[in-house]
């Protein structure tokens, strides 16, 4: 489903990714763990196509398509979703308008019918409720005045509305209290667990993995995958730290 081969990337001419290779087959959830500055967020941004994140070598394919040749909005329409570590505030634009226009733009480019206002609001309310978010918040400007936890929940509501094939979730668990963590974990399982779907879960900590059990765990360090294993690897990392476990 997502196949990354020997990916090198630079940010402001500084090499950050130094040959990442990774294969997430359909139906699997892979976790990427690693210390600060190991390149986790850079990997997420490169996959989503953030300007300024330059690929100098290697490739990434998504469902057989060359992911890196697509513009960010084309990646979204192809079914890729990035859950932001720091969701962005957009004053003056309501969440409802933002998401409806985004979703309909995706649907147009896939040749699907657009959702009417009523259909969209129904979908948005449904997803907000499932994530335990007050649907009234969707009338507010995008992320403006939201707490850290509310922003992360809202990211998951967005994911529920977009219903992507593949999600790259960049530290979606940071800044969450236990209840929010459970809700987010349940959301990931509900929206993204299934045949034909896949998740790359980027996290510092084991705790989210108690709710979303990964099929594989990879350790990223110095811009490369230095170790891969099953779910037990995350527990080992939590116990021993990155230095020991990656040695």
């Amino acid at each position: 489903m997502l196949k990354i081969t020997n990916l090198h990337a630079t940010v402001a001419d500084k090499p950050i990714l130094n040959g990442v290779s990774l294969h997430v087959p359909a139906g699997e959830v892979h976790a990427i763990m690693g210390p600060n500055g190991s390149g986790k967020s850079t990997l997420a941004y490169v996959l989503a196509g953030r300007p300024g994140y330059a690929v100098s070598e290697g490739s990434a394919s998504f469902d057989g398509r060359d992911l890196l040749a697509l513009e960010p909005h084309e990646r979204a329409a192809a079914g890729l979703f990035l859950g932001f570590q720091y969701p962005v505030e957009i004053p003056g634009v309501s969440y409802l308008q933002f998401l409806r226009e985004s979703l309909n733009s995706q649907r147009r480019s896939r040749g699907e019918a657009e959702l009417s206002g009523a259909e969209f609001i129904k979908l948005a309310r449904e997803q907000a409720k499932l994530l335990g978010m007050d649907a009234e918040m969707l009338k507010r400007p995008v992320n403006v005045g939201f707490s850290g936890g509310e922003k992360k929940r809202a990211e998951m509501v967005q994911m529920g509305i977009m219903n992507p094939k593949f999600a790259v979730l960049d530290e979606t668990d940071s800044g969450l209290d236990i209840d929010a963590l459970k809700a987010v974990g349940a959301g990931i399982n509900r929206i993204m667990r299934g045949p034909g779907k896949g998740v790359l879960l980027i996290t510092h900590y084991q705790r989210l993995l108690d709710y979303v059990e990964p099929d594989k765990v990879h350790v990223l360090n110095g811009g490369r995958i230095v170790r891969s294993g099953g779910p037990e690897l995350a527990k080992e990392l939590e116990r021993e730290g990155y230095v020991e476990a990656a040695a």
């Binding site: 300007p51 960010p72 909005h73 932001f84 962005v88 733009s105 995706q106």
Partner: peptide
């Protein structure tokens, strides 16, 4: 903000 909106599926003009 532009990248956030584009990552959700809006084309650059949108």
């Amino acid at each position: 903000q532009l990248f956030y909106a584009e990552s959700r599926g809006l084309d650059p003009a949108g």
